[in-house]
């Protein structure tokens, strides 16, 4: 269900924890699985659970508790904008509005071409860099301006 490379990555995570605590690697394993597959269909969660010898529902609890896991399909690029208060004071909401306008979608929607999904995010711990975006969970973009947003969207559109 997962590539050899992903499994190796998961094995490296498992090795961080005591031998009888494989479940500790579930967050990393779900992350690695999501990176490979784009989102977490139930079969994938079940696979990760059995790989770590834990109950499937326990893995589902984790996958549904932490909000960077996607239990529904998302576009090729998921853009998450922080609109929390400190960011909002420096234009977080305006940045989100600009993205909505540019992409023609609202939060939790995906562009018809399947390229972009827009999400509203909670505090990313980067309030000094506001407005901030998170691209595909792992790449943070700081000090966003309309121009920078244009640039990022253009780059991503080709990827």
């Amino acid at each position: 269900m997962l590539s050899q490379e992903s499994l190796q990555q998961i094995d490296r995570e498992i090795a961080k924890y005591p031998p009888d605590q494989k479940q500790s690697a579930v967050m990393a394993a779900l992350r690695i699985a999501q990176v490979e597959k784009g989102w977490l269909p139930k079969e994938l969660i079940e696979f990760v659970a059995s790989y770590l010898q834990m109950p499937a529902i326990a893995a589902y609890e984790v996958a549904s508790f932490y909000n960077m896991y996607d239990l529904e399909p998302v576009g090729r690029h998921k853009i998450t904008v922080c609109t929390n208060l400190p960011c909002a004071l420096s234009g977080g909401v305006h940045a989100a509005d600009y993205l909505k306008e540019k992409l023609g979608i609202d939060f939790n929607e995906t562009t018809p071409d399947g390229k972009f999904t827009l999400k509203e995010g909670e505090c990313m711990g980067a309030c000094g860099d506001a407005p901030v975006l998170l691209v595909n969970n792992h790449h943070m973009c700081s000090w966003m301006t309309k121009e920078k947003i244009d640039q990022i969207l253009a780059e991503l559109a080709d990827k």
Partner: peptide
């Protein structure tokens, strides 16, 4: 150990639960 989006894990015992998977 990398979190994945839950403010509550900043609470120390929630953080421990999270490390436990």
């Amino acid at each position: 150990h990398h979190g994945y989006g839950a403010y509550i894990c900043g609470e120390e015992t929630a953080l421990l639960e999270s490390i436990e998977g």
